[in-house]
Design a protein around this nucleic acid. Sequence first.
DNA 1: AAAATAGTCAACCGCACCAAA
DNA 2: ATTTGGTGCGGTTGACTATTT
Length: 197
Amino acid sequence: MEKRVEERKTLVKRGLWKPEEDMILRSYIETHGEGNWADISRKSGLKRGGKSCRLRWKNYLRPNIKRGSMSPEEHDLIIRMHKLLGNRWSLIAGRLPGRTDNEVKNYWNTHLNKKCHSSKQNAPGSIGTIPFIDKPVMSTEVRRSHGEGEGGEEDNTWMEETNCFGYDVRIGSPVSHYPDTLVFDPCFAFTDFFPLL
DNA sequence: AAAATAGTCAACCGCACCAAA
DNA sequence: ATTTGGTGCGGTTGACTATTT
């Protein structure tokens, strides 16, 4: 059993994708369509696993992928959405056209998470809060506490993660700092997560 | 110029969920 | 009711690049 897993691991190519591999994957999907990744992996001639193909397509090759640095409005929206939803990267990315969950997650971990901790140190008493979103309403922790985990010890890490940004109560209403761009609307978030409950 | 360190991001892994058999 | 295969998600790793010493 373990031997078979080991064999599969050595047969499947890993690591960074080469331009030729991208070309093969792209043209295969253009002719046969998306989905059935195991099939794509087998029939395209790529020595990649289905998961790897799916990830590459979703995060890099898919049309309309936006690359490059985040705009100020995207930055702003990520912060707000994270405050509301926690680490629900796919939901957050869903509100950022052309951005992937992986990209949003990376952006948060590299740019915002750090800022969060440093701002907390700089202004420990200045943390603004809105009571009902102190805890991201659909954070991983919340989902786990609804039966997805053992529900063991008290975990307050979410407080540290989400209280870091001052949240101006005055802009708690769905008003964007950036007119005619991405308008943050909590209703979107709610319609996104309620079906999951 | 070279080595050490820090930052970034693409990709992998494990787990959970769902539908079909 | 159980098993199996496909898919999606979030956490983590590691390769690569930039910066500092």
